[in-house]
Structures are given as C-alpha cells and as structure tokens.
C-alpha cells in the first residue's frame, strides 16, 4: 500500500488570514476564497535536504556566532519531535529557527529596538530530524520586545520555527512560546488563532528531565505536520 493524498488542512484550527487586531494582516489578507485542489505530484513532492546542506554546529546558537565568548542570557535546550497527524515521525526533515537575543533584539538591519545587539549571538539555527523525528537546539531564551501595532503591544518571548516535511503541502512556519509567559494571552498575533486548544499547541512546557544540571534548562516542542491517507481505495492520484 502506498501513501496517497494528504489530509485536508483544518482551516478552522489554523488562523484565518484577516485578523484585524493584528493590523498588518488587514492589507495583506486575500479577500477571495481559496481554490481547493486535490493533490497532484506537484503537491506531494517537495525539496529534499541532506547533511551536506548544513553543518553540525548549525543547531548550537550558543556557539554558532560566538566571537569573544558565549552570548548573554538564560541557557536553554529546545527539543522535540516532528510527527505527522497519524503520529508517525517525520525523519530527515529540515528544521530552521530564528529568534531575538536575551534582550529582545534581533540581528536584522530593519530592527531598530533600543535593546543592544549581542556581539556573540546570531539568532538562527538549523538541523535535520533524526530517523525517529527528533531534533534539538541549544540557545538562550529570547526576550520579550515591543512592536508597533497598538502603541503598547509586546511580543511574548518566542522562537520562530520553519519545517519542511516530506512534501510541499506540509511546509509550515510557526512560533514557539514558553510555558507561563503572561504576554501570550495578550498578543494579537497569538490570538489570530481562534481555538484556545490550538494556541496551547504552541506553548512549550519546561522539561526538567531534559535540563542539564548546573548548565541549561530545557523546553519541549513537538511539531505536527499534515498526515496522509493510506487506504486501498485511493483515487487515481498519478493517473491511468
């Protein structure tokens, strides 16, 4: 039996495009209905990455831009699995992350926040999941920062996460938040997601079992990509 179509994306679980409390979505959200397609080979394929594309140090944000020493901030491990909706691991898939430094400042030519750049922190990392879908990064916990939406909006501490999966339909970018952060509930970007259970899916719990004593705390973040059917009664995906 070979796997066939991917499950339709649950658009009541995902955020809609037009979310006026997140102001930038107002001019950037389509107003017409999407055209729903059945999968073809253009959708069930996607880019393939290997260990030749990245370096082992790329998943260590404490060391991958260190110039004169380690970056300032609370040392953390972020780890978890990439699974599909059937609970199956997604192996060998590229996971990329980016984040602000411990003061809430991004190393980006367009970020003008007054908190300082950390000379030893780049703020990005990448890795491939192993054969069981596991990944991990080492980094410092990012700081909260203000942003222009209403005049007093602050982003909760977060790490941006980009995942490929095995096909173009599984491509996903999201943000990971930290358990216990009171800014999560106040954030218009978080609240673009209508279902509170879906928001909980983005909050990484403190994971003391994965902490390294006298060194680093740890947070666990599992990522779920779209699953696919595998039935005897598949439609004729590839034709003939």
């Amino acid at each position: 039996m070979k796997p066939a179509e991917y499950y339709q994306r649950d658009r009541l679980w995902q955020p809609p495009q037009f979310t006026p409390n997140y102001k930038t979505s107002v001019p950037r959200s389509p107003r017409q209905a999407l055209l729903s397609l059945e999968n073809t080979i253009s959708e069930i394929t996607g880019p393939v990455f290997g260990h030749g594309d990245i370096d082992p140090i790329d998943n260590d944000l404490i060391k991958n831009y260190a110039k004169t020493g380690d970056p300032i901030g609370e040392r953390i491990i972020v780890h978890g699995r990439v699974l599909d909706e059937n609970g199956r691991p997604v192996p060998n898939t590229l996971v990329e992350i980016w984040q602000a430094n411990a003061g809430g400042r991004y190393r980006h030519k367009k970020d003008m926040y007054l908190a300082p750049i950390d000379p030893n922190f780049g703020g990005c990392g990448r890795t491939l999941t192993d054969e069981n879908g596991f990944y991990f990064f080492r980094t410092v916990k990012p700081g909260a920062y203000p942003w222009r939406n209403w005049v007093n909006n602050w982003r909760p501490a977060h790490i941006h996460v980009s995942v490929f999966g095995a096909s173009f339909v599984q491509r996903l970018i999201t943000q990971m938040y930290f358990e216990g952060d009171p800014l999560i509930a106040k954030c218009p970007i978080v609240n673009s997601i209508p279902d509170p259970r879906a928001i909980e899916q983005l909050i990484a719990p403190l994971d003391m079992n994965a902490a390294i004593p006298l060194d680093s705390l740890a947070y666990k973040f599992d990522i779920i990509l779209r699953g696919r059917r595998s039935t005897l009664f598949e439609n004729r995906l590839e034709g003939n």
Binding site: Q14, N86, C124, L172, I173, I189, A198, I224
Partner: peptide, 27 residues
C-alpha cells in the same frame, strides 16, 4: 489523530532564519 501545529506569521525578520545574509550577517 493529532492536529496540525497552527501556523504563525513569519514576521518581518524571517530573513534571519532563512536568508541571514539578507538580514545583514554571515553565519
């Protein structure tokens, strides 16, 4: 079944993660 992780915007600083040279640094 598990639920697909909800998406969040890539934000204005997406280049740091996906194209750091464009963000202004070489890593």
């Amino acid at each position: 079944y598990l639920k697909e992780t909800p998406s969040q915007t890539a934000g204005p600083y997406v280049h740091i993660g996906l194209a750091p040279g464009a963000a202004g640094f070489d890593i």
